[in-house]
Simulated scan of single mutants.
Amino acid sequence: MNTTVVCSGGLDSVSLAHLISAEGRLGRILSFDYGQRHRKETGFARAAAVRLGVPFHLVDLRPIGAALTGSALTDDIDVPDGHYAEETMRITVVPNRNAIMLSVAFGIAAAKGDSAVAAAVHGGDHFIYPDCRPAFTDAFATMQAAALDGYAEVALLVPFVNRSKVDIVTEGARVGTPFAETWSCYKGGDLHCGRCGTCVERREAFDLAGVADPTVYVDPEYWREAVAARERG
């Protein structure tokens, strides 16, 4: 079973690519340029493909991304600091992003003869991102089965959809994912900022998993403050 892995270059999707590769099922790595705030993460996706010895596809969705306005990931809007659980992180939602990307991924997988598409959506994203929830992935899989009926059978693999980022770090470490060769920060500077939602979640996940975090952060201790603020409600 060859699998197309949708990979942004972040910790979650690179870990998923390594997990699928360890199972001998990795067919290709697929990444997207949708005009996001920075594109350095796609370089990490490309490096993962080279490291794992599979083809890399970078799909240009910039014209579509330009129409999906209102997000801090696509517009000139400041990325907020703080934990993902805070309401302010809703400004990072890009409407229908996963639905659009997965539709393209399924088309490519079917055209290339792959039998599955894998995505690293996880339980920690449910609060903010509706297209990371099980209701979405279940419905999407049903829709794609109808869309490709009689042409190809392509399954949707979302092994982390009901699991946490802690689980992803644990699984990634088990299969030797080089975490230093992943990029999470939404701000896209020379180093991870340590303050945006994805940096806070990344740092917390390593701590809870008991796995050494090789990431260099501009503000390496802010995550503790952000987590404490979330717990205070």
Rank of each mutant, 00 (worst) to 15 (best):
residue 53 G to P: 09
residue 34 Y to G: 00
residue 117 V to E: 01
residue 61 L to V: 03
residue 31 S to Q: 09
residue 129 Y to E: 09
residue 102 L to R: 05
residue 122 H to I: 11
residue 34 Y to A: 03
residue 120 A to S: 14
residue 131 D to S: 06
residue 61 L to H: 00
residue 32 F to Q: 03
residue 96 N to L: 14
residue 80 P to H: 06
residue 41 E to H: 06
residue 97 R to K: 12
residue 118 A to S: 07
residue 70 G to F: 06
residue 133 R to E: 12
residue 90 R to Y: 03
residue 91 I to P: 01
residue 116 A to M: 09
residue 27 G to T: 10
residue 67 A to S: 15
residue 68 L to N: 00
residue 37 R to K: 15
residue 56 F to G: 01
residue 116 A to G: 08
residue 107 G to Y: 03
residue 112 K to V: 11
residue 53 G to H: 09
residue 27 G to F: 00
residue 62 R to F: 02
residue 61 L to N: 00
residue 40 K to H: 14
residue 67 A to Y: 01
residue 64 I to F: 00
residue 127 F to C: 08
residue 115 S to F: 07
residue 44 F to Q: 03
residue 41 E to K: 01
residue 98 N to I: 06
residue 93 V to Q: 04
residue 129 Y to R: 02
residue 48 A to K: 04
residue 112 K to E: 15
residue 55 P to W: 05
residue 83 H to I: 11
residue 50 V to Q: 14
residue 133 R to G: 10
residue 30 L to Y: 03
residue 43 G to D: 15
residue 64 I to W: 08
residue 52 L to Y: 08
residue 92 T to R: 02
residue 102 L to V: 15
residue 132 C to D: 09
residue 33 D to W: 05
residue 29 I to N: 03
residue 128 I to E: 00
residue 51 R to M: 14
residue 114 D to T: 07
residue 28 R to Y: 10
residue 120 A to D: 08
residue 85 A to K: 02
residue 77 I to T: 06
residue 115 S to T: 15
residue 55 P to N: 09
residue 89 M to N: 11
residue 57 H to M: 14
residue 29 I to V: 13
residue 87 E to Y: 08
residue 114 D to A: 02
residue 127 F to D: 11
residue 48 A to N: 10
residue 113 G to I: 08
residue 89 M to Y: 08
residue 90 R to S: 11
residue 97 R to Q: 05
residue 53 G to M: 10
residue 105 A to T: 05
residue 134 P to Y: 06
residue 55 P to F: 05
residue 88 T to D: 13
residue 65 G to D: 01
residue 68 L to F: 02
residue 118 A to G: 04
residue 113 G to D: 12
residue 120 A to M: 07
residue 70 G to S: 12
residue 91 I to H: 00
residue 45 A to P: 00
residue 55 P to S: 09
residue 48 A to G: 12
residue 91 I to Y: 01
residue 43 G to K: 07
residue 133 R to N: 11
residue 80 P to Q: 06
residue 108 I to H: 06
residue 44 F to A: 06
residue 78 D to M: 14
residue 124 G to R: 02
residue 63 P to Q: 05
residue 132 C to K: 03
residue 111 A to P: 09
residue 121 V to P: 05
residue 100 I to A: 04
